[in-house]
């Protein structure tokens, strides 16, 4: 379960280029809920995810994971509960290290690292199996440095790394945006499979309205740092791309009028 209470964040406060990223944002995801986050550029989607992961320190407000207040917890401590995949495939993996070493790092996300051999036979076998699910052949490239993989392969690896260890919250920030349509599809299918199988509480940001319609239990539309609209349950099942786009249009009109 994830709860964001009255989250506020302003960049460059008091300066002429002041930017309100989060404006008293409230959001509640029940355990196992898959929320799809949409909204125009600069709406605060990434800021919200960063606030959950701890990368963004809030001016005020609270973040609760499974009922525990984690607002003051630094990123590396929160990592035991929160896993994420970034938009940029470079960001989520250690380029100069091997596929297996990256898997090891993710594997130890929620446990303490000790002075014993990292990559033992049992772990290598487990990683092989987990990677084979993707069907990209990564399971045969455990010793390959990650910087030799394609963006799609890296992103798929990031995903497998993130869903391993069953995090309490999974954050996906436009994680298929940098990929070609076919690879994006592979990564998306793998995402849905993992989220369903493990019942992960998930926030996925996307600009792809088809994805927002096809996947997830709810659609959360952000605008100017706050939740403008939440579509859940039956309404979500019935929603179409046109519906979602119309909400953007309304907003855009309002913005034009305001300016």
């Amino acid at each position: 379960m994830l709860e964001i209470r009255a989250a506020k964040k302003t960049f460059y406060r008091g300066q002429p280029d002041e930017k309100v990223a989060l404006d008293s944002l409230d959001l509640k995801l029940s355990a196992g809920e898959f929320g799809v986050v949409i909204g125009s550029n600069g709406a605060g989607k990434s800021s919200m995810l960063n606030a959950v992961s701890g990368a963004l320190v809030l001016d005020s407000g609270k973040i609760l994971i499974n009922g525990d207040d984690v607002t003051e917890m630094p990123v590396h401590k929160r990592a035991a509960r929160v896993a994420r995949v970034f938009q940029d495939p470079m960001k989520g993996t250690a380029a100069s290290m091997t596929v297996a070493e990256n898997m090891l790092l993710a594997d130890l996300r929620s446990s303490s690292r000790r002075l014993r051999k990292g990559l033992n036979a049992a772990r290598l076998a487990a990683y092989k199996e987990r990677l084979s699910v993707l069907g990209l052949g990564l399971e045969n490239r455990l010793d390959t440095r990650v910087d030799l993989l394609s963006g799609g392969q890296r992103q798929s690896l990031s995903l497998i790394m993130a869903v391993g260890g069953e995090p309490d919250v999974l954050l996906l920030d436009e994680h298929t945006a940098a990929l070609d349509p076919r690879t994006a599809d592979i990564v998306m299918q793998a995402t849905v499979r993992a989220v369903d199988a493990l019942q992960l509480t998930t926030l996925m940001v996307t600009h792809n309205m088809q994805h927002a319609v096809d996947f997830g239990d709810s659609v959360i539309m952000l605008d100017a740092g706050t939740v403008r609209l939440e579509i859940t349950g039956e309404a979500k099942k019935k929603a179409t791309v046109a519906d979602l786009v119309s909400h953007f249009t309304v907003k855009t009109d309002r913005m034009i009028l305001a300016s």
Binding site: V75, H76, T93, E101, R113
Partner: peptide, 25 residues
């Protein structure tokens, strides 16, 4: 090549990623 040592190398390779994997940078 230990768990700790791999974590230290990750900090050099990608500090943001290391932090997101629970490593105290």
């Amino acid at each position: 090549k230990t768990e700790k040592g791999t974590a230290v190398r990750a900090v050099g390779a990608n500090p943001d990623m290391a932090e997101a994997q629970g490593i105290n940078v």
